[in-house]
Structures are given as structure tokens and as C-alpha cells.
Design a protein around this nucleic acid. Structure first.
Lengths: 338, 338
DNA sequence: CCTAGTCTTCGAACCGGTTCGACGATCACA
DNA sequence: TGTGATCGTCGAACCGGTTCGAAGACTAGG
């Protein structure tokens, strides 16, 4: 494989001149530049990433830490990843994907060894054990998911509290007086999934304000338990005219459950979910939902991360950006029947 | 950040001695080894990946080339990726994930720049434009997906022809005389998705052998077209008692379609799919199916790839391994009603 | 007592880039 | 005609590891 030394020799110049001709960091005469370019072409030269990383202490690689936790919905994670990968490439970075269960150790490894210039953490929990490692690392990091303590980090997430309020307002505004809120499994909350708590608490509070009787339930995440649980809920709350779903698996399972009972939304039940449009299309879900915008979050996180990488001296304060949720109307809600 | 020079100084030895103490490639006295270890611990030393890559010409990173093509089912891809990532880490490798639409160029970039020690290609098409690049690269590669020309590469895939035969045999064996086979969209075949062709041709041939009247149809991949198409099929082939699905989106959409018509499997229709068990659980699909074992394929590919990386002189012949499909019985087939 | 061999350790070179300081040539200006 | 910039290029050092050859100390054997 050709090195820059070979290129220099072929062009009849020194290594440093070849380097400057390629980088443009010093002025080099046009003739020399074109001779160097010709040599590059002829030899098929490509700079060695390791050598360049050593010399510049930049790898042009971003770490992407994903965790595929039991009880969380894997396909949803993919959308964050794709957003991240997309915009990273646009900005000239490659992605080192790390899926190890022990995220803290993996993070320590890739930052200590200088494999990456920065890191994006997905699936951040309230009290995520990766955060102390990230704060101690010399590379900057960006989070997708809001932890309890955000100091020293750029954080991006959906405003789940606002999402909870929106769902409640939407149903209350249509005149509903009783509804059921199906959350992620309790598991997820206990493990530190703060987004579940934030949506729940805000929904409960807003329900009180609007005079909506709201039954809060933790759902399941795997079939057939998801379906059975939904059936059970329909039995237990026969008065409820609204259903709020903060649980992908439950949303995906709902059509069959309603079908089996001969129920239709919005005729018999108004339904509002919280999932991405992409998800809705994949599962052909006919329910209005609050868009969770995973790819947008991933993109924002990378953009901010790269800004920090490329201007390390910047005193720009750390951001905690909570995206304003939007309700996508798919016509699954209406005023309750008299 | 501490370098090996700092470690050496702290331990009172030369850099080379420190290196040998850590790698164990030459015998070093136990006292010196423990002094070096202590220094490593005290300084929090971790070797710089770039420097090590430069010196050893090994990056301990594998490239993973994924393509998220329109009309192909994205969540299915995730499972291949997870299998690959898992076993790579077990073997000490990290994963550089590349999702660029122009896979050939991306592959050239990461191999030319020596960012990876080897490459796994997912989603390989009949006449994949990444293959010439891979064959010309100095690093070995492994494919998941069978192209037309396998020379010089290790290839892993499900035996789709056998899968087609198995589906047909299963229904024919139960006494069915007429069935519909729903394939991936024609798009996928035209683009070079050989697995569609292989399954189809084998199914058609076996249907002739077994005297089964088989209607071959290309399905859709997005809602609501998928569902509409299934409805249309039920109308067009009222005599068919069997349904074969080689199309994830169609499988996912089928429950609602059957429900809406008041049909049940296997009472009214025998159904056999071709998707992974993981997929079946996620979508709570009650249909028997041929397991496509994506994570197993990913794991096999990485194991073989790493074997090649670690023994580059090996004359071991290239393998083309087609996994024997297995039918997972979920009770959705029965003898046709008289 | 001398020599050959073993065990540890060290110094130097190398991997392939980037970058700094210096140097010679050219040019404008006094 | 001498002086000071400016331009283009080169050599050398450096990034942080690994590895080879050699050298010194010590041991064993003749």
C-alpha cells in the first residue's frame, strides 16, 4: 500500500511538501500540487487512519453507545441509530457502534484508548452509570435521553411531561371524563427510565386539572402478555372512553385486541399513542400519536457533539434541549358517545 | 493522558521493557512486571489505539456494512447487526458501522484507510457492487447473503431454495391443493435480491412435483398497500386454502386482515411465513414460520472472518454455507376443510 | 579460570502521517 | 544596490506504540 513517502518520491518532492499539497495548510506552487495529485491518483494513495490519528490526535470517529435492554422495544432504537449515523457521515465522521451490556466499561475503553473523538449515548437512564465515565473522559459527549443530573453534558430528549399533558388535554378537550394510561412495564421505570415517570406525573397532574379520571397502568412488553393485559384493562374499566398508550408493544397489539372485541376507534374508544410516525407506518397503526422524533433527536445530538469536538475551547454553555412534542392526528379520537 | 513512556519512567525501566512486560512477548522478571503493573494502575494507562494500529497494522475493528434499502424491512436488519456486534466483542473486536447508501465507496474508504481489519457485508445482492471493492481490498471479508459469484469470499445465508420447498411440502403434505405465495415486492427482486428468486423458483418447482396449484404474487412493503393487497388476494383466489408469506410486512399485516374478514388460521386458511422467531414475538404473529436465524448468520460470518484475519496465511478454502431452514410450528396449519 | 549459554534489559529503529523552523530564491522598495 | 518581505520547499522532530539486535550479568560446564 502506498504511503505519503511513495507519493512524495513519485512527485519528486519531500514528504512534508506532499502533505501540505494535500492538506492545503501552506501555499504550494500549482505545478507541485498537480504533480502530487497525479502521484496520488497513480498510486491509489489513501492516508493511513492510524497514523493520521496518532499525528493529529483526531480519529474522525464517533462512539455510539446503545443498550438493548430487555423490555425495551428494539426496533425503536434503530431509528435513533440511523439518525446518528446519517448526520455523522454528512459531517465526515464514522461510527463505532458499541452494544455491550456493560456500557460504562465499554465507554471507558473506547475513550481511554482514544478510539473516538466524541460519544453519543442512547437510552440514558435517570442515574446512568455511564455518565461519571463520560464526565471524566477527555472527549465530549451528547446524550439522547434526560438523566437526573445533566451537568457538563449536552442533552436531547422529547419533552415527555409536555407529551403527557398534551395527551390528557386532547382527550379532555373532546369531552372525555375517564381514561386509561398504559405505560411501559414497571421494570423500565425502576431501572431508571425517567421518561416514563415524567410523562406519567405530568399526565396525572393535568388530568386532575382537567377533571379527567385517569387510571394509570404499567403495561407489558412481550406477547402474549401485552394483549392479555389490554383485554384485562377493557374489562376492568368499562366506563373509560379514552386510552393513552405510552408503550410501543401495547400500541402494536391493540388492533387485534379491539378487533377481537368488535370495537372500533374512535367510535367505541378514543386512542392516543406516543410513538414515531415511522413506527406507525411499519405497524400500520391507525391511532393518533405524539411523534417521538427519534431520528431528529439523534441528528441534533450529533450536530452538537461535533460542534464541541471542533471547537474544544468553546465556552458555550451546555444545552438541555427538550423537543416540543407534536400530535399527529390519525383520526382515532372523537367526542365520547353520550 | 499517560503514555507507555510515562509508565516506563514511573516503573524505572525502559519503554521497551514496559511494553514487553505488558504484552508478555518476552520474559521479564516478575519484580519488573509488578512494578510496571503498579505504574499502569497508578497512572490509569491505556494504550493509544492509533499508535498501536500504526505499529502493529491491526486495528481490532471490524467494518459492518449495512444498507437500509427502501422496501426492505428495517427491523429485520437489526438482528443481523446485533449478532455481529455480539460475537465481535466476544472475540475482542469493535464494530465500525457504515450505513451509507453508496456502500461501495464507503467500503473503499474504510479499507483503503486501514480503519478495519476485516469487513462483514449485510444485505448482499446478486451482483453487488461492493464485491469488486472487497475482492481488491487487502482485508478479508465475509458476506451475509448469497451473491451470484462467490469466488474469493466466505458466504453465509439461509438456504432459501430449501425453505421454499419446505413450505410447499408442508402444505402439500397436509392435503392442500391450491395456495398463494406472497413474495417481497418485485422491486427487491429486480434490485438483485436473489433470495426472493431462489425461494420462489424452488417453491414453484416443488409445487409442480407435489401437484399443488401455486399462485405467485409480489407483495407490497408499506402500509396501507400491504393490507389492501392481501385483501385483494383473498378475493382473487377464493379456492386457495394455503398462504405462504415470504414478506415480513405482509406477515405483520395479516392478523388484522384476517380478523376484519372473520377468518381464522388454521380453521379457514393455513398460513406459513418465513421470518425469525424474534420477529414473530415482537409482532405477536401466531403463524408457523421458517426461522431465518439472522443472528446465527451474523455470528457465523464474524467467526469465519476473524479466523481469516488471525491466520492470513491460511489456505483454507472459501466457504459458502447455506443454513438448513427449520420450520417453527405455531399451529397455523391444518388439513384443508372438505 | 575461561567460555558458552541463558536471562533481563536497553537503545534504536520503525510504523505513516503532520507540523515547525529554517533556508534559498524572488520581488518590491528605498 | 542593498534591505526586508514574501513565497515555496525541505529537513527534522514528533505523535505513542512495537520489535529487533545487542549488551551486561549471571550461571553452568569443561
Amino acid at each position: 500500500m502506498a504511503t505519503i513517502g511513495d507519493v512524495a518520491k513519485a512527485a519528486g518532492v519531500s514528504r512534508s511538501t506532499a502533505s501540505y499539497a494535500l492538506s492545503g495548510k501552506r501555499s504550494i506552487s500549482p505545478e507541485v500540487v498537480s504533480k502530487v495529485m497525479a502521484a496520488v491518483e497513480a498510486l491509489g494513495y489513501a492516508p493511513n487512519a492510524g497514523a493520521r490519528a496518532l499525528a493529529t490526535s483526531q480519529t474522525m470517529v464517533l462512539g455510539l453507545l446503545v443498550q438493548f435492554l430487555q423490555d425495551e422495544f428494539a426496533p425503536a432504537m434503530l431509528q435513533y441509530m440511523l439518525g446518528v449515523a446519517d448526520v455523522a457521515r454528512e459531517l465526515g465522521y464514522d461510527i463505532l457502534m458499541v452494544t455491550e451490556p456493560d456500557g460504562a466499561r465499554a465507554l471507558k475503553r473506547i475513550t481511554d484508548q482514544r478510539m473516538v473523538d466524541g460519544v453519543v449515548l442512547l437510552n440514558v437512564a435517570d442515574d446512568d452509570d455511564r455518565l461519571p465515565v463520560l464526565r471524566a473522559a477527555p472527549q465530549p459527549g451528547a446524550l439522547v435521553g434526560l438523566p437526573l443530573d445533566c451537568t457538563g453534558l449536552d442533552v436531547f430528549d422529547l419533552d415527555f411531561a409536555e407529551a403527557g399533558r398534551m395527551m390528557v388535554d386532547h382527550l379532555a378537550g373532546l369531552g372525555h371524563r375517564e381514561a386509561v394510561l398504559v405505560l411501559q412495564p414497571e421494570h423500565v421505570l425502576v431501572r431508571g427510565g425517567g421518561y416514563v415517570r415524567r410523562l406519567r406525573d405530568a399526565a396525572v397532574e393535568q388530568a386532575a386539572v382537567r377533571g379527567l379520571l385517569l387510571h394509570v397502568e404499567h403495561g407489558e412488553s412481550q406477547q402474549p402478555a401485552v394483549g392479555a393485559h389490554l383485554v384485562d384493562l377493557l374489562d376492568r374499566y368499562p366506563q373509560a372512553t379514552g386510552l393513552l398508550l405510552h408503550n410501543e408493544a401495547a400500541a402494536a397489539a391493540l388492533p387485534s385486541v379491539l378487533n377481537a372485541r368488535g370495537l372500533q376507534a374512535p367510535r367505541d374508544l378514543s386512542v392516543v399513542g406516543r410513538y414515531s410516525d415511522e413506527f406507525a407506518r411499519t405497524f400500520s397503526l391507525p391511532y393518533s400519536s405524539i411523534e417521538s422524533a427519534p431520528d431528529r433527536l439523534g441528528r441534533l445530538a450529533v450536530r452538537q457533539l461535533v460542534r464541541r469536538i471542533e471547537d474544544p475551547t468553546s465556552q458555550e454553555p451546555y444545552v438541555v434541549r427538550l423537543l416540543q412534542p407534536e400530535l399527529v392526528d390519525r383520526g382515532s379520537t372523537a367526542a365520547p358517545q353520550a
